[in-house]
Amino acid sequence: MKPLAFPPGEDETSPLKKWLSYVWPLTHHVQSDLSGTLEVSWVNGRKVLDSRNANYSYGSLQTILTYGLAHLDFSAEAPVLLLGLGGGSILRPLREAFRCTGPITAVEVDPVVIDLAHREFQVGDVPDLTIVQADAVAYVTQCTQRFGLVIVDVFVDDQVPPVFYALTFWERLASLLRPGGSVLFNAGLHRRHALRLEALIEGMHPRIQLQRHERVNGTNTLLLGKSVAPTE
Rank of each mutant, 00 (worst) to 15 (best):
K2T: 00
K2H: 00
P3M: 03
E10D: 15
D11C: 04
S14Q: 08
S14L: 01
K17C: 14
V23R: 14
V23T: 12
W24G: 08
P25F: 03
H29G: 06
S32H: 07
L34V: 09
G36I: 10
L38H: 06
L38C: 05
V40N: 07
K47A: 04
V48I: 02
S51T: 09
N53E: 12
N55D: 11
Y56Q: 11
S57P: 02
S57F: 00
Y58V: 10
G59M: 11
L61D: 00
Q62K: 03
Q62Y: 01
T63R: 09
G68N: 05
H71G: 00
L72P: 05
L72M: 13
D73G: 01
V80M: 11
L82N: 02
L82C: 01
G88Q: 14
L91E: 11
R99T: 09
C100L: 13
T101C: 09
T101G: 10
P103R: 03
I104E: 00
E108K: 05
P111G: 14
V112W: 15
V113R: 11
I114D: 11
I114T: 04
H118K: 14
L129H: 11
I131M: 15
V132G: 03
A134H: 14
D135E: 03
D135R: 00
T141P: 15
Q145K: 04
G148I: 07
G148Q: 06
L149R: 06
I151Y: 08
V152A: 05
D153F: 05
D153R: 08
V154E: 14
V156C: 12
D158S: 12
L167N: 05
L173D: 07
A174P: 00
S182W: 13
V183S: 10
F185K: 02
A187H: 03
L189E: 03
H190A: 15
H190L: 04
H190G: 08
H193Q: 12
H193G: 12
H193W: 15
E198G: 15
I201L: 04
G203K: 01
I208Y: 09
L210Y: 15
Q211K: 13
V216Q: 00
N220A: 13
S227D: 09
V228C: 09
A229L: 01
T231C: 11
